[in-house]
């Protein structure tokens, strides 16, 4: 464990808790893409298949349970909570997210470290996580206004992946044969997707204006 990875995990934890707290407190999911939340629930479900077979550490297991619990809770709130679901804008959140799942699954079937069920599902979860934010970014561009909690959510998600890149650089130089090309490439692609959001997020923060994404 290094400071970059711990900071990354804490930032990731903060992103899901900020979102869950927002939805639970104000009983609204305005501006939140259900599609992205469903993709994230699938990412965690396919990545943490080893939660019962491989015990790594208490930290690792607790964090996996929190990520699984929070992502499925967020999906439940938006789909089934009698108040929250009324604020879900299904006419705007129209990204066909199965068009993201299929290529990720195909790629995982061809590009992986070893051809076992768990490894292919794990690789699928990496590819899917890289693109899972797209429905949310599309929704933000459509609705144009970003309430600051949704903006914070996207910002924290991007920051977590950015910190992981520093973690991989650190581990590459400190641990012999720590090489995981698939993880690195998927992580860099994911971070790049946030790059333009970060630019507009900082611009609005610097000029102290409401964050407006270009159409």
């Amino acid at each position: 464990m290094n400071i970059f990875r711990l900071a990354g995990d804490m930032t990731h934890l903060a992103s899901v808790l900020v979102l869950l707290l927002k939805i639970h407190t104000i009983k609204s999911c305005a501006g939140v893409s259900l599609k992205t939340q469903e993709l994230y629930a699938l990412v965690f479900a396919t990545r943490y298949l080893d939660i019962v077979t491989d015990f790594i550490s208490v930290y690792n297991t607790v964090m996996k349970l929190i990520f699984l619990g929070s992502s499925f809770s967020i999906v439940w709130y938006i789909r089934h909570h009698r108040v929250v679901r009324r604020s879900y804008d299904k006419d705007q959140d129209t990204f066909r997210h199965y068009l993201l799942m299929i290529p990720c699954m195909l790629l995982a079937l061809f590009v992986h470290e070893k051809f076992t069920f768990k490894e292919v599902m794990w690789t699928f979860s990496l590819y899917l996580e890289a693109v899972a934010i797209l429905p949310q970014l599309v929704l933000l561009q459509r609705t144009r206004n970003i309430d600051n909690l949704t903006g914070q959510y996207v910002f924290l998600l991007g920051a977590y992946r950015g910190l992981y890149i520093f973690n991989w650089i650190y581990r590459y130089f400190t641990e012999p044969h720590f090489v995981h090309w698939i993880t690195w490439i998927a992580g860099v692609v994911q971070t790049l997707l946030y790059a333009d959001f970060f630019y507009y997020y900082f611009e609005s923060w610097k000029n102290n204006v409401r964050l407006q994404l270009p159409a």
Partner: peptide, 10 residues
């Protein structure tokens, strides 16, 4: 050798 944990990251 210790059981090297390949997947130790979240």
């Amino acid at each position: 050798s210790i059981h090297e944990h390949e997947k130790d990251e979240l």
